[in-house]
Every structure is written in structure tokens, then in C-alpha cells.
Write a protein that binds this DNA or RNA. Structure first.
Lengths: 225, 225
DNA sequence: TCGACTTTGTGCAGGCGTTCACAAGTCGTT
DNA sequence: AACGACTTGTGAACGCCTGCACAAAGTCGA
């Protein structure tokens, strides 16, 4: 590495993290509009459908380029294409799911999973009782088959739906196989190398955040009354 | 409303949103430490366990007050107590789950759900075939029983695990019953009154964000090679 | 009792994200 | 062809959050 820290090149391709998350939401709204037969949409309308500010939406879309028409709005089909390309949804991605317990079972059968270019191609579990079972047309493999199967199918995303205790170990195995994107449902903070992206879905944390606001609201009412 | 916009009172009780989310993570790490028999922990250690910067952790904890001892660290039990209080976890909260399909079924049986003060007390579904079934000791009610049951049990949080098409309708019904905190698993942006908090868990969005980064990584490699 | 070491709590600067406001551009109508 | 209505794209200001760096404070050992 000759350059330690490149001085923010930003070749108009650097999309803020917050924007990326919203692009996915816009995409869903646009798909719904498309199916409803709508051809063009204004930033105001799309923003309402996505639950955001219209200025924010315009700025978000401007990171992709200028694909709107002033005085008219955006062409739905065009936007769908550009957002899909930006998010890397132009080609399908194979997903490996580890942990076929309570939650994993539901995820394996979740229809929305395969909707937009994602497909679960392999299931794994450590429990010998589950190995060999078939779920939604897929066989449950043992953990020792992970390397072989993940390389045969070209897996690009790993999903961890194991108990907390097993998660880090599973994560290490996924990383060792070369997977660099992980979606973690286990309630634990995973440690990974810098080149690996981890996103966490944590039900307990979500509930606790709601609890916080609920308490705050109750305290506010008490003060008033 | 006499005052349109109160000028930021901040009675030292205003905890930033980002901090609230992390407090829940700290709490889990602390609980694990407590069970392991650890009595005191430094900001450096706890930060490592929670996957954050130590300065950030100290600042987060400082919003709760000064409960650490300089030169020593934080007492685990004390912190657990203060964070629990701040998040409103001192008394249990009852949860109503709407939608007992693929995902809802898994959520109903999710052990971690009841772990820290949350308890599912009621299940609902619109499908007549599911009404009357028993899941994990709870009967599945029809939607018309929602008001009655939610008020009998004091429900403070509603969880929506229905298909996208039904979610807004279910949401409206929950709000009508007086529920002001909603956790939404349906892939749709819910519209709610200002006093209602909604948190969204969206698998498709998470996958698409990973896809984006995966593509970016691939593009980077291509440039180098 | 004193000094050295450790760790907390926080002021401050920098960066990121959001929002406003408006110029620039497009279309439909006359 | 010109005008008016409408909408995008974006510069700039503002606010929130992060991370650094250090003073304050407490502990341990001599």
C-alpha cells in the first residue's frame, strides 16, 4: 500500500451509508408504483410513499446522477433500473443460511427473501438431528460441509440464525470460506476482519428502544397530569 | 398546543437516539459479564465487548450520570441497574403479536423475546384457519378480538408480522386500541400519528445494503487488478 | 502521607446528514 | 413564440454525532 489514506476522491460514486439504506426503500415503493401502472412520479409523491422528506429524496437520487425531468418528475422504470444497478441487484446473489432453528426455519421459507435477486442456496446446522432434513427443497448440511458447499454454489452472503453462543464460531467459518457479507440475527457483536461487512438484526434491541420511548412518553404524561 | 416548538429544555435527561440503541447493546454485554462473575469493568473492556469506541461508550454512559469510579471502572451490577432504568425495563412489558404466519410463528416461539422483561401475551391473525389454534400456550385470536384482548391484558407494544398488504390496516387497528409502540416486520412504510413510535425490521433492505457493499468491493478489486 | 499510575468524564473540533431555499430547466397553453 | 406553472438539482446553513485529548479524581503501593 503506497497511499495510506486517499484524500477523499469521491468520483461522484460515493453514496452515503444512510442514502443506501433509503434507496432500498425507494426501490420497493417504485416497484409497487410500476406494478400499479404508474409511469412517472414526482419527488413529493415518492417521498410520501417512502416516508421521507422530498428534499432528502431528491438529494439521495442525485447521488446516482440526474435522471429526473424538471417540471415532470422521474420515470419509474428508469429509476428502478438505476437504483437496482447502484445497489448491485443486476445479477442474483446466492445466500447461505446457518442455523435452522426457530428463526432460521422461518427465514428459509420467507417468500420475500427471494423476491429481488436473492436466493437461499444452502442450509447449515450444527445439530445432528437436523442434518439431512429437507426444508423448502433444500437439504440441511452439517457445518463441516460449509467450505465445500459454499464454494460449489457461489455464495456471496451468509446469514447467521444460530444461538448467540455459536454465532462467532459460525462467523469465523464463513469468513474463512471467503464470505465478506454477513447478516447476523444472533444477539451478539461479531468480530470480523476489516473487509467483511456485518449487518445486525436484533429483536431485543428493537424492543428495548421502543421501551425507552414508551417510558419517556409515560413520564411526559405524568408531568402534565 | 400553546407552544409550537419548545426551545430544547434538555433537563439532562435527553438521551440521543443513537445512544439509546447502544445502551441496549451495552446492557447485553454487561449481563453476560455479570453472569460470568465479573464485578467491575473498564470502559475499554466494555467498549470492546460492545464493538464500539471507548470514548463513545463513556460519553454514552455519562448521559445516565457519573456512575463510574476513576482509576477503577464501572461496577457491573450498578450499570445494569441504571441502564435498565433508563430504558424503562424495570417493569415488564406486554407484547401483542399480529400475524402468525411463517415469521410470526417463529417470533412467538423466540426465547430471546421474553428474556428481558418482554412477554408475548396475545396472538392475532386474520386467517380463519389459524384462529383458535394454540401456539406456545397462547390462543390465536381473530382480528375482531383485538380491542378487547389488548385492553384486558395491558399491551404496550404491538408487533406486526403480517404480509405487506395487511400491515397498514393492522397498524391502524393497533393505534386505535391505544398502542403507541409498534415493531414492524412487514416490508412497507407505515403511516401513524405523531405520538406513535414505529421501528422497522426489513430483511430485504438489509440484504440490499449488503449487496451494495459487495458490489463496491468487487468494483474496487477490478480496478486494482 | 505522598507520589505514581490508572481510568473516568468532558470540552472541542471535525465530519456527516438533514433541511431550506432557490436558480435552472421543462411542459402546456395561449 | 412567449408566458406561467411546476419540478428537479444543489449550494449553504444548521444540528447531531463522533473521536480526540486532557484535566480531574480515585486507587495502590511504599
Amino acid at each position: 500500500m503506497t497511499e495510506q489514506r486517499e484524500p477523499k476522491v469521491d468520483r461522484c460514486r460515493t453514496i452515503p451509508e444512510a442514502t443506501v439504506a433509503r434507496l432500498a426503500v425507494y426501490l420497493r415503493a417504485l416497484t409497487a408504483l410500476d406494478e400499479a401502472g404508474t409511469h412517472t412520479v414526482s419527488s413529493e409523491e415518492l417521498a410520501a410513499a417512502a416516508g421521507v422528506n422530498s428534499a432528502k429524496l431528491r438529494k439521495d437520487l442525485s447521488y446516482l446522477g440526474s435522471y429526473g425531468t424538471r417540471g415532470v418528475g422521474y420515470e419509474v422504470a428508469t429509476l428502478v433500473g438505476h437504483i437496482s444497478r447502484a445497489l448491485g441487484l443486476t445479477h442474483h446473489r446466492n445466500v447461505a443460511l446457518v442455523g435452522v432453528g426457530n428463526l432460521g426455519h422461518a427465514l428459509a421459507g420467507y417468500a420475500g427473501f427471494g423476491t429481488r435477486g436473492f436466493r437461499i442456496v444452502a442450509l447449515f446446522d450444527a445439530d445432528p438431528a437436523r442434518i439431512g432434513q429437507r426444508l423448502h427443497g433444500l437439504e440441511v448440511h452439517g457445518m463441516n460441509a460449509l467450505a465445500e458447499v459454499c464454494q460449489a454454489e457461489v455464495v456471496s452472503i451468509g446469514v447467521i440464525a444460530t444461538p448467540a453462543g455459536a454465532a462467532q464460531d459460525v462467523c469465523d467459518k464463513l469468513v474463512a470460506v471467503g464470505i465478506t457479507s454477513i447478516l447476523n440475527f444472533a444477539p451478539i457483536v461479531l468480530t470480523v476482519p476489516g473487509n467483511v461487512d456485518v449487518r445486525k438484526v436484533d429483536l431485543a434491541v428493537e424492543l428495548q428502544i421502543l421501551s425507552f420511548h414508551e417510558q419517556r412518553k409515560a413520564a411526559g404524561l405524568e408531568e402534565v397530569g
